[in-house]
Simulated assay, not measured.
Amino acid sequence: MMMRDLHDEELRALLAFRQRYGRCWKAALLVRWSTGVDTYEPGSSHLRHLRNIGGPRWLIRLPAVTLDDAARRFAGIVDPALVAIFMANATGFARSAAGSVKIAHASAAHSLAIAIELGLKAFLMKAGYADDWNRVHIRHDLEKALALAMEAGLSGLPPELPDLIAILSPAYGRHQIDALFRGGASPFDVTDASLCVDRLLVAIHAQIA
């Protein structure tokens, strides 16, 4: 059975342990796992859970790049001005979409996808995710951005948002939103989608204020 992806809390616990014990941190953690004194370490519940579901073999094989990448991601320094710019632009694209929902469905859908991306990235930056990391690792993947934002605590989301994102994200990432509406097709009600994105941005505004 393959080990699942690590949650942020687990990555933070491992990073903190590595910082405390240096180059031989894996050996130090294996000793603590085997003697039970890992319970005295900060983040002990996460370390113990990783022992139970991963075990020594997983720890030994854990690539250094996994923690290095997480460290770069967590190094994001919150820039209120940049967060505000992202949110202002998200709101602007959402308004643009609302103005064109009845005359240009594909254009409106593209604006909604941009609004979702910018809004979720604004929340992630406020939560400490570095903009550079977001740009490299999330890119235009709306589903990944939503999952990370929810893991970081984003709540109060419109219930229809995951379904909307599941439709938009693959086409948005390949710059093919126009294809969703080719021949008069419409994979979702664009007016309803516009209202959904408005509610998403309201939720984000409330939680990053």
Score class of each variant (00 low, 15 high):
His110Gly: 14
Pro158Gly: 07
Arg135Lys: 10
Asp178Pro: 00
Ser186Lys: 12
His140Asp: 07
Gly153Ala: 04
Pro170Asp: 08
Arg139Ile: 05
Ala113Lys: 07
Gly183Cys: 10
Tyr172Gly: 11
His137Gly: 01
Trp133Ile: 12
Gly119Glu: 10
His105Phe: 09
Ala127His: 00
Ile177Pro: 03
Ala109Val: 01
Ala166Asp: 10
Ala171Gln: 03
Ile167Asp: 00
Ala115Met: 06
Ala171Lys: 06
Ala149Tyr: 00
Ala127Met: 04
Tyr129Met: 14
Phe181Leu: 12
Ala113Met: 06
Leu120Gln: 11
Leu146Gly: 01
Asp131His: 13
Glu160Asp: 15
Asp132Arg: 09
Lys144Asp: 07
Asp178Lys: 01
Ala106Arg: 05
Lys144Cys: 03
Ala171Cys: 09
Ala108Gln: 04
Leu154Gly: 10
Ala127Phe: 00
Ala115Asp: 02
Asp132His: 02
Ser169Lys: 07
Asp178Glu: 13
Gly156Asp: 09
Ile103Asp: 11
Lys126Thr: 08
Pro187Trp: 02
Ala108Leu: 05
His110Val: 00
His105Pro: 08
Leu168Ser: 08
Ala152Ser: 13
His175Trp: 03
Ala147Trp: 02
Met150Ser: 13
Leu164Phe: 11
Ala145Pro: 01
Met150Ile: 12
Leu180Ile: 06
Ala130Ile: 04
Pro159Trp: 00
Leu118Ser: 12
Ala166Gln: 12
His175Val: 05
Ile167Glu: 01
Ala152Arg: 11
Asp132Glu: 12
Ser186Arg: 14
Gly153Val: 01
Leu164Arg: 09
Pro159Asp: 12
Ala145Gly: 05
His105Trp: 06
Pro170Ile: 13
Leu164Trp: 08
Ala115Thr: 05
Ala130Thr: 11
Ala104Ile: 02
Ala113Phe: 04
Ile138His: 06
Asp163Trp: 01
His140Arg: 10
Lys121Asp: 11
Gly184Tyr: 08
Asp132Lys: 03
Ile177Leu: 14
Leu148Val: 09
Ser169Glu: 07
Leu118Glu: 14
Leu154Arg: 06
His137Ile: 02
Ala122His: 02
Gln176Thr: 11
Leu124Pro: 07
Asp132Ala: 14
Ala166Asn: 10
Leu142Arg: 04
Leu120His: 13
Arg139Ser: 14
Met150Val: 15
Ala145Leu: 01
Lys126Glu: 14
Gly183Trp: 05
Pro170Glu: 07
Arg182Leu: 10
Arg139Met: 05
Leu146His: 02
Ser111Cys: 14
Ala171His: 12
Gly128Lys: 00
Lys144Tyr: 03
Ala130Asn: 01
Leu124Gln: 10
Leu124Asp: 08
Ser186Ile: 00
Tyr129Leu: 13
Glu160Thr: 13
Asp141Pro: 02
Ile114Asp: 04
Ala106Asn: 03
Ala106Pro: 00
Leu124Ala: 12
Asp131Gly: 04
Ala106Trp: 02
Lys121Tyr: 04
Gly119Phe: 11
Asn134Leu: 15
Phe123Glu: 04
Ala130Arg: 07
Lys126His: 15
Ser107Leu: 13
Leu161Gly: 09
Ala149Glu: 01
Ser111His: 15
His175Pro: 00
His110Trp: 12
Tyr172Cys: 10
Lys126Gln: 15
Ala147Asp: 11
Ile177Thr: 05
Ile103Phe: 02
Lys144Arg: 15
Ala113Val: 09
Met150Gly: 09
Pro187Cys: 05
His137Ala: 13
